[in-house]
Design a protein around this nucleic acid. Structure first.
Lengths: 217, 217
DNA sequence: GTAATCTTTTACCGACTGGTAAATTTTATT
DNA sequence: AATAAAATTTACCAGTCGGTAAAAGATTAC
């Protein structure tokens, strides 16, 4: 388990005292802009100027609120990971196995649809070897091990086929996040047909079928 | 369909005449080093100095063989995509449906195991919106549409369940490439147990089960 | 062996990057 | 209205980046 998360160090503006109205607004504005830029260009590919532009601020003004590029990035990741793991936390041992897994897949797919930038931010970080989130990943491991135990108990009780639960989680993560992370490829391959929400409904239908028939006995 | 691929423009060394022995050796050396660096840091995150260092050359010497960073990157992508699509090309309409799909999954997983850097190079490019490979992606679409037709005909003949073949391909790509692209996460979640090839055998077993039981009628 | 070609090194450049100092302007408090 | 604090701008800097010029050194062809 990791340390109780040291408050992300920001700039003078919010060091000790409570935030002013302007601080609240501008910090949110910056994080929103930064999410966009980091998700589309990666940490190294993003520049402070770009983020500042998109937020409608000057670079030094932005650095008045966050003392460095890395501070912004880290705060985004911290916020993200908490939300990202929520669906997994909600997987309950006392539910119906197939329903629980179906709900989990559905929730993950909704995250990919509604928060694609967060998904790509995370994907970028993992792709580069997760240099800035090793700590959070070990929290993830604890949670996954716990939930894997539940899945395995369902398996052994005959509610599911026999399989390695960890690889089931990998498969669910991969298939759902694929629609956010590889959107550029998905769009080309599917063409312009069904560009709207239909796409996600099709994906949901397919994944439901795949995992239910693939995992239920 | 795309144009007949203009020969990637390189530097003086290989503009018109045929390659010398040294050119062959050094170009391979550079591409090997560049693959490593690009895969781990993305296009923007990679620097020519880094690639040159890893290849044991000076920066100007490297630029004698490839006229720009982008030229190297493009040549890597060109080589990659051809190999990457091979397993899909080998999916034959006159084979046994379930065996064909099983073989395809197996081959894709082997690629992820044996060529993880290539997988990450590709993933990086798609994640950033595929700015440098839109042309190749439309070739991919043609191929996928063709193979999707085969899958659909198998479906309609009763050899497979009814489902959208495109989403099946997405699921196969996502689950197999996940082991290369998200390796950092996979390693943490699985822990140190079974660090060797066992991991890939476990993955193969799980994916076989998932897709066969999920797709066969 | 020598001339022509290919390869490598040295020295550099202009653009961009993350970040800072300090002065100025705006906002909140009284 | 005065003043203290907060917010913003202007001007800047040192390091890194991709890339080039030109000369020196090594190979090859004859």
């Amino acid at each position: 388990m990791s340390k109780p998360k040291p408050q992300a160090q920001q700039s003078r503006a919010s060091e000790t005292r409570k935030r002013t109205r302007i601080q609240q607004e501008k910090e949110d504005l910056i994080l929103e802009a930064a999410l966009d830029v980091f998700a589309n260009h990666g940490f190294r590919g993003a520049t402070i100027d770009q983020i500042a532009d998109q937020a409608g601020l000057s670079k030094p003004n932005l650095l008045y609120y966050f003392k460095s590029k890395e501070t912004i990035h880290r705060q985004l990741l911290d916020r993200l990971l908490d939300n990202w793991l929520q669906p997994l936390r909600e997987l309950k041992a006392d539910g119906d196995p197939v329903s629980e897994i179906k709900s989990y897949i559905r929730r993950k797919l909704e995250l990919a649809r509604d928060y694609p930038r967060e998904s790509r931010l995370f994907a970028n970080e993992i792709l580069q070897g997760a240099p800035r989130i090793d700590e959070e990943l070990s929290d993830l491991k604890v949670l996954v091990d716990e939930k894997a135990k539940i899945i395995r108990s369902w398996s052994e009780a005959g509610y599911l086929k026999k399989f390695d639960p960890h690889h089931m989680f990998f498969a669910i993560w991969a298939t759902t996040q694929h629609y956010a992370d590889f959107d550029a490829q998905v769009q080309v391959v599917l063409g312009n047909v069904g560009q709207g929400d239909g796409r996600f409904e099709d994906a949901a239908r397919f994944l439901d079928q795949l995992f239910v028939e693939g995992l239920a006995p």
